[in-house]
Design a protein around this nucleic acid. Sequence first.
DNA 1: ACCTGAACACCGTTCAAGT
DNA 2: ACCTGAACACCGTTCAAGT
Lengths: 185, 185
Amino acid sequence: MVLAAAQELLAEDGLEALTMRALARRLEVAPNALYSHVATKMALVDDILDDVLAAVEVPDPDRGDWQAGLRTMMASTHRVLLAHPDLVPLYLARQGARGPNAQRLGEVMLSLLRRGGVTGPSAREAQRALIVHAIGSAAFTTRRPLERGQGDADGPPRAELIRTFERSLSWLLAGIAATAKPGKA
Amino acid sequence: MVLAAAQELLAEDGLEALTMRALARRLEVAPNALYSHVATKMALVDDILDDVLAAVEVPDPDRGDWQAGLRTMMASTHRVLLAHPDLVPLYLARQGARGPNAQRLGEVMLSLLRRGGVTGPSAREAQRALIVHAIGSAAFTTRRPLERGQGDADGPPRAELIRTFERSLSWLLAGIAATAKPGKA
DNA sequence: ACCTGAACACCGTTCAAGT
DNA sequence: ACCTGAACACCGTTCAAGT
């Protein structure tokens, strides 16, 4: 309940409106009552970050082309992040998320990479590069709320920014695939 | 003077210690006296972000291999960001920096890309991808100060993280170069 | 131009106590 | 288990006034 209210507050009024006191107000409760449900504000934010990741489309790690699987996953992640622009800086500050959803995504990535012949330290490197790329791109795609006015009337074409993301994602995947089979010999 | 004191405070005690009131204390002045020198805390932070970028190594945009030039620039940017871990989330939140140093870096990047045959919208895309990559990588390379204790005794090998950065930078540059001459025909 | 005292409208969090 | 009143130790910023 607290988590849901926090997400509503965030969606409606943005990051700086997400305040323990505002949250308490919305729940019609005294501010300190929240501490019966949440250890700290940072823990609450961590919960939000992981919860949002539940919407990411996860392919079956054992079926289909591994590169296509990674492409699907990362594109879905990018889209989910774009839907939550206020959270993007937080993902970066926290370096991803720590909850069960994040962990599952990480494991699927490693499975796909393993099927592509990328294992060990290289797999961790590739994983990190892909995550950095998805979150970083979202950070730069996101229009920062200068005035916080209309929805999508202003700003440069969003479709183009998504294409930019997908193109550089291709570069990364190509590079990762090349790492897997250095000489193809 | 205010800028310098703010940077010292940041270097010594971290981001959350950078407070208008703490800054005033350090300058032995009343908190509101700062507002004779700085419009707002955010403006001060913007000044810091741009000032730090003065340390980035900028190649002569008209000499040498353009890819090598970009590689030098982005690697230098990465190193500068690693030296200021507390600021990295802020660069991401603000999507880079806005001051004269940032502008100059952006122009040099575009010059190098132009010499590589990358112009127009593609140049903007490539520029964005490179910046995202440098800042995003720094964000994930940075060890977040869990306790804020010793300098570099703990954590995974930093040299390896830098190699990871350089490898994925190569992927991006290769992809950008391929964009420039689609068929090489 | 630069500073001060006082104040405003907030924060996150803790503590002791109640049901 | 969940809530409350009261308080602590802070924030950024403004206003009127002083030099």
